[in-house]
Design a protein around this nucleic acid. Sequence first.
DNA 1: GTGAAAGCGCTAACAA
DNA 2: TTGTTAGCGCTTTCAC
Lengths: 324, 324
Amino acid sequence: MPTIYDVAREAGVSAATVSRVLNGAQTVDPDMVARVLTAVRELGYRPNAVARNLRRSRTTLWAVIISDIGNPFFTAMVRGIEDVAQQEGYSVVLCNSDEDPAKEETYVAAALSEQMAGVIISSSGSVKAAKTLIESPIPVVAVDRELPRGSVDTVMVDNEAGARTAVEHLLAAGYRRIACITGPEGVSTADLRLRGYTAALSAPPVIVRTDFREQGGYDAMAALLSSPEPPDAVFVANNLMTVGALRCLKERGVDVPGEMGLVGFDEVPWADLVRPSPTTVAQPTYELGRMAARLLVDRIATPAAKPATIVLPAELHPRQSSSR
Amino acid sequence: MPTIYDVAREAGVSAATVSRVLNGAQTVDPDMVARVLTAVRELGYRPNAVARNLRRSRTTLWAVIISDIGNPFFTAMVRGIEDVAQQEGYSVVLCNSDEDPAKEETYVAAALSEQMAGVIISSSGSVKAAKTLIESPIPVVAVDRELPRGSVDTVMVDNEAGARTAVEHLLAAGYRRIACITGPEGVSTADLRLRGYTAALSAPPVIVRTDFREQGGYDAMAALLSSPEPPDAVFVANNLMTVGALRCLKERGVDVPGEMGLVGFDEVPWADLVRPSPTTVAQPTYELGRMAARLLVDRIATPAAKPATIVLPAELHPRQSSSR
DNA sequence: GTGAAAGCGCTAACAA
DNA sequence: TTGTTAGCGCTTTCAC
């Protein structure tokens, strides 16, 4: 690979001039610009970004750490982040922690080592990763899920209100024994949605905690069905678990919404093609990503500003699974 | 941020010794190791990966360039890549080209500038990006989609055979006027699946080309329905377009599989919950990613070896949409 | 407007 | 076994 010195020699100028041309400095003679560009083309020269990053001691990379790349909720959010990033001259490096705190810590360490310009994270609950990030000089934005014990810029939906709406909707439809399937303790969305569920209920709550995956939802539903007094409805705290719960109900031949009502948090892709179609609490996913990216841009510009928290509304989408 | 010299001073050793300790050299006195590690902890030192990469003139990053992060097919594949990468000590940087050749070119340029250790790409058809990659010294593996005009390591399924199987399945079910909805010309999966369709057919083919997105499938189906002589079945060349086509059929009240048979390429998530459930040609998605990553590891080890092509089988999953 | 030279933080020869 | 030193490729003063 040719270096900037090869180009300089070929063009008969100094390396400094090549650098100026390549970085769009105004103060270069047009003749030299032409000579440099010709040399660049002839040699097939590509600036070495690693060297540039070292010299400038900054990069144009954002680490986006999400907890499940297989969840369409996150990929839609990433789209929002990417669009802003591109517009602002950053590239997005996507890191999939897979709901594994250890992996999350590894990615956080890598983001710091690689001197990334910023981090957007949807925490899978690692306190250590959160601590490392907060103590580091790197700008951080939490999206979807709050950072454990962290005071950083945050964008999320009103999880509690969304959950309450879901449960009230089930109550209004006449369901009485409403259970809740939620995610791991310490993950903010799991805890807040659970709180909203509890708040809306006057009867004693029935809670199953599992992971946020499809299989988790399936198993939780199976457990509820085989309990001595099964619920007549269930509020499920994310989309993948909702799909798992639906699959379980279908396999057991339980009539939805007749024998069992269901509302899930997060939109389910192709919900309208699924039978019975699930009632959901939808989030402005793309917007969530966009706002997070905006906050990161601001934070990079003014690192000392006070952390902001943006809460967007979630919206009930009534479908078949809750209307008996 | 403290540097290696700060650690050296704190520990009363040279920077070289710190480096040796941190890189696990065997030839360091245990006392010094202890002193260095203490200093590292006290200062909260993190090695600067940018500097290390420059000095070593290599990195431990792979760029994985996929054409649609919203497509579960790709995210499942990425999982396979990630698992091997982690095992081999590489980190995966995910780049979403969004089926946009210009974005693809940008990411390829970035991968080269950043001196990435390797690239795994599912080409969205950019000949320029392919050319740049092939002419570069960076190890490349094509996955799912062949690189345009490129001779590089490749992992894909037998697209032609899969498509043929799908169409033969429709013929066996008694459908006679079978249309094909496929992707953009120049994208290998679109072209090969189309070829398989044509090969299985004795009647004249009816072909609609669109993008590989859900809306594209919807529009293509709408166009077929409003043609003078609509087909009685359709073979759709990817999962998102299949969902779009299904949605269109549902909205128009077309009975599937009665009035219209349908088989889609790629698995559709939660296919079994959708009504009517789509018959699909499923790919070993995770395995595709795993094999691609394996090839990349080999290629990095022996850059001069002859390029390999691995073709995995695709498998028909009969469901409701094709059985009348 | 251009070039010389220093140095970003690290690793790896080489010397001791 | 440890330290000294050079240099990875680039950008950015500073002097001209």
